[in-house]
């Protein structure tokens, strides 16, 4: 139980971090990279811990994690594209 609470606090912290960066008026890569990384970690927590897919046999975990990675990766690419 304590583990779940810790993860929850982690999620809140990462959210606050992303929000803080935006409020600080930062833009470009300075926001893009940390925020996407934070999102990746958050997504990973939800998938592995909350959905409890970690340790599940079969392809489910990798499909969902793959979805997250693919979507975030392509978002990063598209935003990078827009900057240049």
């Amino acid at each position: 139980m304590r583990v779940a609470t810790f993860q929850w606090l982690m999620l809140l912290t990462l959210t606050a971090l992303s929000f803080g960066l935006a409020e600080a008026g930062m833009s470009g890569s300075a926001v893009l990279i940390p925020v996407l990384l934070a999102t990746l970690v958050k997504g990973n927590i939800v998938i592995d811990r909350f959905m409890a897919l970690r340790g599940v046999k079969g392809p489910w975990r990798w499909i969902v994690l793959g979805w997250l990675l693919l979507v975030l990766g392509l978002i990063a690419y598209a935003f990078q594209l827009a900057q240049s």
Binding site: S18, A22, V31, T39, G43, V46, F50, M51, L72
Partner: peptide, 23 residues
């Protein structure tokens, strides 16, 4: 039911930074 709810959460976790924060 829990899995479905987490999915809704997961989607929002991506949606929020994408639409509200990243620029």
């Amino acid at each position: 039911g829990a899995a479905y709810w987490h999915m809704v959460d997961l989607v929002w976790i991506v949606l929020f930074p994408l639409i509200y924060i990243l620029n």
